[in-house]
Design a protein around this nucleic acid. Structure first.
Lengths: 110, 110
DNA sequence: ATTATATATTGCAATATTACGATTGATTAT
DNA sequence: ATAATCAATCGTAATATTGCAATATATAAT
């Protein structure tokens, strides 16, 4: 069907999956790294740096924005993007919580 | 096209995106949580616990296995799954590295 | 050998994602 | 006003994902 049955999972499971999905593309990883490494907003530098068409990058930016991971502000003729600190904190927190469930190697399955 | 241009990104970016993609579904989150919370391998308990058909769960398990996140061993007529500790360590490490790029709130984009 | 049980695979339909060219909209410079 | 620049949106094609019924496979029990 191609349609996730979101209703049978918890709010937290859906939220984590949604955020991870937004991250789960090399172009979006690259965009976020570029923003974070600059430690500032970046304005339009992305096209040309990544080897993707302008429309494609705009689409990836929209996905990151829809997930709440970044926010953009119009700066003259270009648009500046930066990490949305609120969502980013949530992301860090729920990823930590998820990974913390792992208690280390087990002695089964040998 | 629907085909990611993996060749224009770094090995690390592709690897992180691949692992996050394997995680980025509420059913697979739920499966991993179930395995981790048991702190042992789990054998066939998944069908019935999640509200998905057996074929669907089998498919999600295959995706987790293909990404290297879990491994399975045949135990009589059922199959036991557990976290693959090697890949899991890599996952924790590269997620930490990725998140560590964030230097905190900036003063731009106001 | 036959049956029961558990998981994997196949085939299919519905929907989502990725990518890009072309176009549009908005702002700045001339 | 006009042109230039930048980013968003639209339309489209190719491919991927999600989900399940049906079937196949493999082991255990009778």
């Amino acid at each position: 069907m191609g349609l996730t049955k979101a209703d049978i999972f918890s709010k937290e499971q859906n939220r984590l999956a949604m955020l991870l999905k937004a991250l789960a593309h090399p172009a979006r990883i690259a965009i976020l790294q570029r923003i974070m490494i600059s430690n500032t907003c970046i304005c339009g530098d992305l096209v040309g740096e990544l080897g993707l068409a302008q429309a494609t990058i705009s689409q990836h930016l929209l996905e990151l924005k829809s997930a709440g991971l970044i926010k953009g502000s119009i700066e003259g003729t270009s648009v500046c993007y930066c990490i949305d600190p609120d969502t980013w904190k949530v992301l860090e927190s729920i990823i930590q919580d998820f990974l913390a469930n792992y208690k280390g190697e087990t002695v089964c399955c040998q």
